[in-house]
Design a protein around this nucleic acid. Structure first.
Lengths: 158, 158
DNA sequence: TCGATAATCTCGATCGTCGAGAGATTAGTG
DNA sequence: CACTAATCTCTCGACGATCGAGATTATCGA
């Protein structure tokens, strides 16, 4: 491979990092607008994702999703419930469990903010052909796989 | 546009978010391995980036880079200096200023961890042609621009 | 019923962040 | 040259998020 090609790939890695930073800023902005901290946003996103899959997250599973201990989850849910983003709902089947349901207002705010971003991104992709988007898709999947392997300390190429 | 095309673009947005999460996990892992918190890592990255540009970050500019007040920057630099990742160096020209220099060990640890990731990513790009990488590059730049516009509350398309 | 298990909550302590203000140094002005 | 304003960093006290340990409530099997 040429030096040019190597440099081009390094530049892509830097561009990806830049995009990563900007995407983080979107979450940051959402947090500031709604008076939330980073963990609160991650929790709401986790609950929304679960809802999209048709599951109702329990307090315990939320703790796993955002990597917090039970004491912190209680405080987290207290915060979000106090400002009306969340409801605690005792599970009818297993009454030890606490189901977490997002309020309509929080759902709407999330959809407005992040859904709006998804729309903007989608609109920015309109100028791309199906073939081009297929290349991007493959690249995203390959990069994700490479990052996951790196995170687990596994050797690079498959 | 067809529904299929719209769904394909939404899937790309989701893939991007997934990759974003995995990249965050890499930073998280680095933090855990070295006993640092998230802010500490962001600070070290900011200092490394500045060093790569040939600048020596001052305490004030570091605060701007990671969005912390001066009191927090002092505590941050205290932490990093205590474990030997950083040195305070009084600026000779303006003796109010404190220059921040990374220690060789911290620089090496960062290069090993994040440089290794960059290598893995680069290796995963070897299977792509120049044309394909050009498409990805354009896409990354377009997405970054779209995200930045969205963050500033500006209308989507250029 | 009773002990084991599971899910959640309470309490006290620790750590990161902030606002306000102090101390030190420089730049500008008469 | 003195004096004031501006700039940069640090100190102090307070607040909030998180954690570990243990208590509480509910379920299940013997």
């Amino acid at each position: 491979m040429t030096d040019d090609a190597a440099r081009a790939r390094q530049e892509l890695a830097l561009l990806l990092r830049r995009l990563n930073v900007e995407l983080d800023a979107v979450g940051q902005r959402f947090a500031e607008v709604h008076g939330l901290n980073r963990t609160d946003v991650r929790a709401l996103v986790a609950i929304m994702d679960a809802a999209r899959r048709g599951e109702a997250l329990t307090a315990g599973r939320l703790g796993e999703a955002v990597d917090l201990r039970s004491a912190s989850v209680t405080a987290l849910v207290d915060r979000l419930e106090k400002v009306g983003h969340l409801r605690r709902v005792r599970d009818a089947g297993d009454r030890r469990r606490i189901g977490l349901e997002m309020s309509e207002s929080a759902m709407a705010a999330g959809a407005e903010h992040f859904g709006g971003l998804a729309r903007d991104l989608s609109a920015a992709m309109e100028r791309y052909s199906d073939d081009e988007l297929a290349v991007v898709r493959r690249w995203l999947e390959d990069m994700t796989a490479a990052v996951m392997r790196h995170s687990r300390g596994e050797p690079p190429a498959p």
